[in-house]
Amino acid sequence: MSQKTIKLKIKRQDNPRSKPYWQEFEIPYQPLSNVISCLQDIQKSPATANELGVNPVIWDCSCLEEVCGSCTMIINGRVRQACTALVDQIESPIVLEPMSKFPVVRDLMVDRNRMFRALKKVKAWVDIDGSQDLGEGPIMADSVRATRYTLSECMTCGCCLEACPQYTKDNSFLGAAAFSQVRLFNLHPTGAMHADERLEEVMGKGGIADCGNAQACVEACPKNIPLTDSIADISRQTSLKLLKDLLLK
């Protein structure tokens, strides 16, 4: 009796300095499987198609419902979250690779610290006076809230950067996620008080002017965040700031 199986081809790397290599796995098919459950099955009996007792495949994951951003990897050539990659909906064999724009930690796990550094650089926060009770927050139209909410759903997963031809391992481009956060905070009534500081941070090397408008980011974003609107909007804000600084200061 031939049992239905799931075939996986996984690019592995033992540590950041070692050479990557490929391994193939074959596990029994089960309904409702996704790439995560496949990797979990491999954990439970780590063996490749022709070698027993290999180390289990390492990957990053947490929520498994596409809100934490951890399990981002390249699946069949495209970047996406492993949790939403349902086996029934993707091609077999399933080819898994780590994201290519970030340093590999091990196997499918990468270090996305650069993204968090970018958030720090662009001052992605609202400056408040403190956590003491200062009464209600600013009144805001629900339409502005809706725009902000969409932008704020960014889970720093890095899909936009992985797909971006302008974002490379060795340059300093900040990328769509960070630009979109600048827009998010500049849209907030309190955040807008420090809008110029954020704009200054994206008006340098690796900043908004480096964007080549390939717009792969918006296609790759799993949360459908209008990243290219954000880029154009921040372009406008920085252009106006440039003109203002040149003409009025």
Binding site: D142, H188, G191
Partner: peptide, 16 residues
Amino acid sequence: HLMDRMGVAFNRTPEG
């Protein structure tokens, strides 16, 4: 109110 001041995109009424 604190979270709102920090910028959480809480849904709003027509009056904001």
